[in-house]
Design a protein around this nucleic acid. Structure first.
Lengths: 210, 210, 210, 210
DNA sequence: CATGAATGAGTATTCATTCAT
DNA sequence: GATGAATGAATACTCATTCAT
């Protein structure tokens, strides 16, 4: 739940050969600077300075400022998907399944709120980032949740006739809204957000039951 | 459902003295341009050109680009709560109530997509705008919905013991997500979004029932 | 025969509104700076500074550095063509016609050697400028000379059966070589160049005679 | 007539120690890249990449980009006068002599167009290179042609009283113009250029005859 | 010796803002 | 009051060169 991005590792010593270390430092600080200033207002110069290396590297390694944002976004979602699919065991009840899913989203959203702010702010405007963001934010999560719900449906805990794809999409959207909008953008306290999520999970579970 | 903001009135004839007409044209086109390009990427030149007047006026009237954004953001707050309370009669069932509420949100979000893009894109980054946006996007709607749900609860159509404030907040968040994110930002077709909303409304209504 | 481009008029007073004056100053100083440093090495900053106005104007008025070069080139050739066709009366003999033509080319090349240096240096490499330069350098002059020679041929001073188009092209090329290459690039003294031209004109006239 | 410079030998295998091979590869590709892009626009990176070795070597071997250009420019001076005098037997008529000379120039210019582009593009701007270029392009050829013409004059095929030095200089200039400018810079088809040259050779021969 | 990672000075271009007309 | 010409500060990106490996 801590914001690990606020104080990235210092980059490699000046002049030393360390491509990987510099790429990492650049991406880490990009997250910070982008989130402090917004994508447009952030300057490649500041990112490079704080990462402790030369501006040109941003262009050499990532193909410029837009490439850097894309790289940050990608890296973030890669690690998150792994985390989602690996880290969450199946739950015994639908309600518990939904609660876990929402809590996970809420916590993860908080962890990298910095990156999410920039990404969303940009996605709303730039269709390229928008598409990418949708894929990242939604697709993997909806797939995951649909599979879980379908399994519960198969086990007879959800009534037949409901399309789990649609339900999963809707619930995933709700979770995203809680995690990002309510919590990050509108700054509601996490406990409140989570409690709302639990309430709604209960209602939904009851509504889904046979 | 038509986008009234995409083609604002052309401003007053060039060179004519018409302060009010020019201010309106400038603000109308600012919404469009800000929403098309984002605040930073938008240029005062383009706004002025499309509004049919000179760049200098943006500074004279609004104190520059930030002032213009502020004016746009502020103006919007006036007009919306009205139609919400006025235009929507109480419904006989909870499901119908939720369906209406969500559809209204989805349609309004579409009509207003230009302004919403600007606002959200900024709100996500700038906490001050974020606060204002929350109040506007959420508070009024949550109040409205809570009152409605409480009424249904009083009528015995929703089981006791549930906090309608929490439920209303959650549902309102979901509606916002459908209307703005799914539909506007991620460009899903309105019919799909609405159909998802109806499905989830049914599930929720069932979950709320005594 | 003086190089008028070396000390252009000072541009308009700073801040004054004078679009035309600034365009002129910019073009005048572009000639100088381009010729002093070469196209690539010249900087828009220096051009603007010496012209006494802001860098942005180069982009607003001419569409950037390449546009500025093109503008300079065009203006120069425009005035030259007028000069050529207006200023040269028909001569009584073929030899005199050729001598006059060559001397004109040699003198004009010297007058704006600065611009020619840049243009040629660039034309050799950049096909766009190359094509344009060929048109300017050759087409108008070849047309002019062909017409003159055809007239002499009609008068019986040149033998039938020779294609005046081919002859004109060749002679024009030779003149260009004398005026620019020998004189400007290779720095041979003008008198020597002219005397060579006169000699060859005599030989050619004799060779063309019936 | 084939362009041997356009596809130089690939350099030595990567990482192998082969100083001489690398120097040659670097110079060969420098000619090509300089001529394709011009000196300033060419990048050491591209040259090194195409030569198949690392950028650093350009600095180690040649002392940087300017040094590489100097090396290219210098190397060329060695090889050309030889084939001129060796390869061309005396002709029986003046016209044939001129035709041969011009055709030789046109063909050589084409073969060497890469180097010529670089050289001319620089010579036009840089007086030092200009001087060297004149010596090379002109002096040797003028000497050669003067000797030939003087011989024809001695044989009574050219009228007395004409200064063969002046005539040779003029004709050599004309040949240079055809070979380089018309053909290489302005991209006229070689056959057209040659045919023009033949026409003018006939006219000149006739003009020179006693 | 050869590599390629790293540098930083330098450039064209953009744009909000000012101000002469 | 309205215009649009002019400004200059700011920015992403390039590239010759250096130097750790």
């Amino acid at each position: 739940m801590t914001e690990n991005a606020e104080t990235p590792q210092a980059g490699p010593e000046r002049g030393r050969h360390d491509k990987l270390g510099r790429q990492r430092a650049l991406m880490d600080w990009a997250k910070v600077v982008f989130s402090e200033r917004g994508y447009d207002t952030a300057t490649t110069r500041e990112i490079a300075q704080r990462a402790g290396c030369s501006e040109g590297l941003i262009h050499r390694y990532f193909g410029g400022k837009p490439g850097l944002l894309a790289a940050v976004l990608q890296q973030r979602e890669l690690s998150r998907t792994v985390d989602l699919t690996a880290g969450m065991p199946r739950q015994a009840t639908v309600e518990e399944e939904l609660v876990r899913f929402m809590e996970w989203e809420i916590e993860k959203s908080w962890d990298d709120r910095a990156t999410m702010r920039v990404t969303v702010s940009r996605a709303v405007i730039d269709p390229i980032i928008g598409d990418r963001a949708r894929e990242f934010f939604q697709a993997t999560r909806v797939d995951f949740l649909r599979e879980r719900l379908a399994w519960h449906q198969g086990e007879g805990r959800i009534r037949k006739g409901l399309d789990m794809g649609v339900v999963a999409a809707a619930i995933s959207g709700f979770a995203f809204n809680s995690g990002f909008f309510a919590q990050v953008a509108f700054q509601e306290p996490q406990e409140l957000v989570k409690s709302e999520a639990r309430t709604i999970a209960a209602v939904l579970a009851r509504g889904l039951a046979p």
